[in-house]
């Protein structure tokens, strides 16, 4: 349904021209996303996980067209996204849910108007009475009361606000939803409510999801396939259960090792050393090599290509 081909997005983070010229500095380019390829079949969920700065949110924004790509393209049902988004009908079919329900809802609008906005923008239900009915139905669908439509966002808790965001995203009858850390700002008991709701909606409405998260446990609950990102690239892409049962890339393994686990009470473990390098000056070769226990000269010199779901020389050479 949706596919990304060698998608890249670079940001120019140079100092202003005059300063740069006087200091004889070169331009500084931040390669937020650097060649990402994936596809999401209809009705399934692809998740992208990674630490902060790995480019996962930038991918989300590229996929819905909030940023134009620097290189590569996004295909929506085989058509280039840039062309597809020119048609309102195509825009209607994709929606986004953001991380912070405190920032993504207009505090001066009533919930009814927030949820109805996409309906009005695409002129889906012109009759006001029918529109009211549709909003009430959406609010019921996400577990709120139709009476909540008359309230303002500040009257709701974080979890309820995220339900409003979901209702708004659903109001244009989309087929594809991009969720950027939809539960990261929520408490854990409320997070479970929202994750259950999203899974329920996917079953009922046949939605396709691109799910962005830093939390591997959350991702395991919702995904069909998972892409692990590091410094602007996908380093491993696999079926969800395979990834957890048989993580192959050293970074995926390190990430899983690092997660504090309830079952591990009292046991100690060895944390991964080092930190994510700056995407402005990424390491040569494989970006993970300075932290990788399996790195050798080839890793330092040559960036590995994605082969059979994993981009790692060591795995491909059988050194792992």
């Amino acid at each position: 349904m949706i596919a990304a081909k060698e998608l890249a997005r670079h940001f120019d983070v140079s100092k202003p021209w005059l300063q740069r010229t006087l200091a004889r500095e070169p331009k500084r380019i931040l390669r937020a996303v650097d060649g990402v390829t994936f596809d999401i079949p209809k009705g399934t969920t692809l998740s992208l996980v990674g630490e902060s700065g790995c480019g996962k949110s930038t991918v989300a924004r590229l996929v819905v067209g909030l940023y134009p790509p620097t290189a590569g393209q996004v295909l929506f049902e085989g058509k280039d996204l840039a062309a597809a988004r020119a048609q309102p009908e195509m825009r209607r079919r994709m929606q986004m849910i953001f991380q912070d329900p405190y920032a993504s809802l207009n505090p001066r609008w009533r919930v009814h108007d927030i949820v109805a906005e996409p309906i009005r923008a695409f002129n889906l239900v012109p009759d006001p009475a029918a529109q009211r009915e549709r909003v009430a139905e959406l609010l019921r669908q996400v577990g709120l009361s139709p009476l909540d439509g008359g309230k303002y966002p500040h009257e709701f808790s974080g979890g309820q606000r995220q339900r409003i965001s979901v209702a708004r995203a659903l109001s244009s009858n989309p087929e594809f939803l991009v969720c950027d850390e939809p539960t990261s700002a929520l408490d854990v008991s409320v997070q479970a409510q929202i994750l259950n709701l999203m899974k329920q909606l996917q079953r009922d409405l046949g939605l396709t999801f691109l799910f962005i998260s830093h939390n591997l446990a959350v991702v395991r609950q919702v995904s069909d396939r998972i892409g692990v990102m590091y410094l602007g690239r996908i380093v491993e892409l696999a079926q969800s259960e395979n990834l957890f049962l048989r993580p192959r890339h050293p970074y995926t393994r390190a990430l899983m090792e690092a997660i504090p686990d309830l079952e591990m009470t009292g046991r100690s473990r060895t944390p991964v050393g080092g930190e994510v390098p700056s995407p402005i000056s990424p390491p040569s070769g494989c970006a993970f090599h300075p932290r990788c226990p399996l790195a050798n000269d080839r890793c330092r010199a040559e960036a590995p290509a994605m082969l059979d779901g994993v981009a790692c020389h060591a795995v491909q050479e059988g050194r792992d």
Binding site: S189, N196, R220, Q221
Partner: peptide, 24 residues
Amino acid sequence: AGLMASIPPLDRKVERLAQIDGSM
């Protein structure tokens, strides 16, 4: 007990997470 049950497990996929309805 509800709080513990609502934590998504890392070691398996569950069909439906336990949730505590409502909020504090």
